[in-house]
Write a protein that binds this DNA or RNA. Structure first.
Length: 527
RNA sequence: GGCGGUGUAGCUCAGUCGGUUAGAGCGGCGGCUUCAUAAGCCGUAGGUCGGUGGUUCAAGUCCACUCACCGCUACCA
């Protein structure tokens, strides 16, 4: 059943360059979307940059340029990285895009007209150094932590969105749609937030006076103010697909899923659904929340310099290997740890030893024992049956797990098929059988089974490792398979044509020798 | 303080409605094998399922308490 599918990453804030966290989110979404495209869905994949706000001003000041220049610089930086690593987004949206400004203003006006935005004066402690109001946490002994000076009481008027008006609806909605926010632990956190927010009045400040911050989208109903943060940022999800009357807006919106990091759960779990409610739109199908990457067991931070540049990973290991690690080693929703050690272990174990090596041995033997052409299969016996079953299981599990946002489990399913095929090869021992002319039929069957299994492995892997999967198919003589494939039908057993010309090629994922292993080897080689 | 999460073999994790001898992958160890990227296959390692006390014919799996770590309560994926 094909249909529409719309997936978003958060838009990344333009005060830093892409690191492992941004890369993970983006790669994950790319993988999910590629999978759904393979399933025949009409997909729209949106990513982009969040460019307004105070922090951009700060960075711009530091860099001695205008906020627009800073935003431009970092936005391009993200875009360039995504292009370098082959992200297949359909649009890279910027909150400074003209259509986005228009949509934000249109929505603000509408919510304002409906009386859900209030103008309110409040008093707080303002630090002149910070140019903002301080919270208790910003202060130590009544002084601003950063400037060590006493903040002054000051009043300011701002616009507030009355999101609390929708809390009881939202609570019900979440309870009636238990997989709206997933994994479950984050659903529980949102429910807890709703209770806390009720106590705070459920108001969301959505403006800043221009006198204090003018880098933003002007409020349509008060030109002394700009829109602040969430109305600006979240609405990108609507602008991206042509709100309100783009040709496929409804098709995409009703099949929308967001992927976010756990740090922005609240805006996506609380602010956003209430905003959508205020303008009469359904919530997205899912908000899928992932955890953080630590690096070498420490938090990612600028000061530690452990941000992990995806382009450097590409240079050192090949981007798909890094991409594979990210998808394979994070249990969705939980925090995970990255280390080059773990990366190398994973590359060697899964990519080199299992997948890559199965490709090598299969194609090598097809070359040697079958003249390089996929041979005609003979009788299907129990060992073949087991591989065929493993393939069917993998296809079904991958689908279930991808839709359930569990890419790491989907990869396990694919690896199970690879394992089954490696085991099968040991059982049939075509390298021995090939010496006995009477077993020619068995050899043909064996190699056919392995080639076919590889074809299915490649199809399933295509969303995760687009380049490598295409290469496997190409070596099987199926260079254009991905262009026409539709899952699950294309992954049914028996799709590989007999006589398809194969090519062994170089190791797909070269094994990475660690320093320790090299030492051991040079010692061995010395005598 | 409140709320939530996590704690299962050396490492990373599975364990659905409580039920036969608690699982997988990786690593380690032993063996087989040579088609293959010194890859693969087979076998194995015996973990008080954080702790204590309960409920039950039966608990990793439910309840209470407790310890450790983490998160949220604060606009950085």
């Amino acid at each position: 059943m094909s249909g529409y599918f719309y997936l978003t990453t958060p838009i990344y804030y333009v005060n830093a360059e892409a690191h492992i966290g941004h890369t993970y989110t983006t790669v994950l979404c790319d993988t999910i979307v590629r999978y759904r495209r393979l399933c025949g869905d009409t997909c729209f994949f949106l990513t982009g940059s969040d460019e307004h706000g105070e922090k951009v001003l700060e960075v711009a000041r530091r860099r001695g340029e205008s906020p627009a220049q800073t935003a431009e610089y970092f936005s391009n930086s993200f875009l360039r990285v995504w292009e370098e690593i082959g992200i297949s987004h359909d649009r890279f949206i910027r909150t400074t895009d003209a259509d986005h400004k228009q949509v934000v203003q249109q929505i603000l006006q509408r919510v304002y007209d409906e009386g859900e935005i209030r103008f309110k004066e409040y008093e707080g402690l303002y630090c002149v150094g910070c140019e903002r109001f301080l919270t208790d946490r910003d202060m130590l002994d009544g002084l601003c932590r950063d400037h060590e000076r006493a903040p002054e009481p000051r009043t300011e008027a701002n616009y507030f969105f009355d999101m609390g008006a929708h809390f009881s609806w939202l609570r019900d909605y979440i309870e009636q749609n238990p997989d709206f926010i997933r994994p479950e632990r984050y659903k529980n956190e949102v429910l807890a937030m709703l209770d806390e927010e009720t106590g705070l009045g459920g108001e969301l400040c959505i403006s800043r006076p221009k006198s204090r911050l003018d880098w933003g989208i002007e409020l349509p109903f008060d030109t002394d103010y700009v829109c602040y943060v969430w109305f600006d940022a979240l609405i990108n999800y609507l602008t991206g697909i042509g709100y309100p009357d783009g040709p496929h807006f409804q098709d995409y919106w009703s099949n929308c899923e967001h992927v976010v990091g756990k740090d922005i759960l609240k805006p996506h779990g609380v602010f956003w659904p209430t905003m959508l409610r205020a303008i009469g739109l359904e919530p997205p199908r899912h908000v899928s929340v992932h955890g953080y990457w630590n690096v070498d067991d420490r938090k990612v931070s600028k000061s530690l310099g452990n941000m992990i540049d995806p382009l450097i990973m590409r240079e050192k290991y090949g981007f798909e290997a890094f991409r594979y690690f990210l998808l394979r080693d994070m249990v969705f929703g939980q925090d995970s740890n990255f280390s080059e050690d773990a990366l190398v272990r994973r590359i060697n174990a899964d990519l080199a030893n299992n997948i890559g090596n199965l490709v090598s041995r299969t194609l090598n033997m097809t070359g040697r024992f079958a003249g390089g052409l996929v041979p005609e299969p003979g009788a299907i016996e129990i060992p073949e049956r087991e591989v065929i079953d493993a393939a069917a299981t993998a296809v079904a599990e991958v689908d279930l797990r991808m839709r359930g946002m569990r890419p790491q489990r989907a990869l396990e399913s694919i690896l199970a098929l690879v394992d089954a095929t490696n085991r099968y090869l040991e059982l049939r021992e075509p390298w021995k059988a090939a010496k006995d002319p009477e077993l020619a039929d068995t050899v043909s069957t064996t190699l056919h089974t392995c080639c076919e299994s590889l074809r299915i492995v490649a199809l399933l892997l295509a969303a995760f490792l687009p380049v490598a999967a295409a290469e496997i198919l190409d070596r099987l003589g199926l260079g254009d398979a991905l262009e026409t494939a539709v899952l699950p039908a294309s992954a049914e057993w028996g799709g590989i044509p007999v006589g398809s010309p194969t090519r062994k090629g170089k190791p797909l994922f070269p094994r990475i020798e660690t320093a320790g292993a090299e030492d051991a080897e040079s010692k061995d080689g010395a005598d």
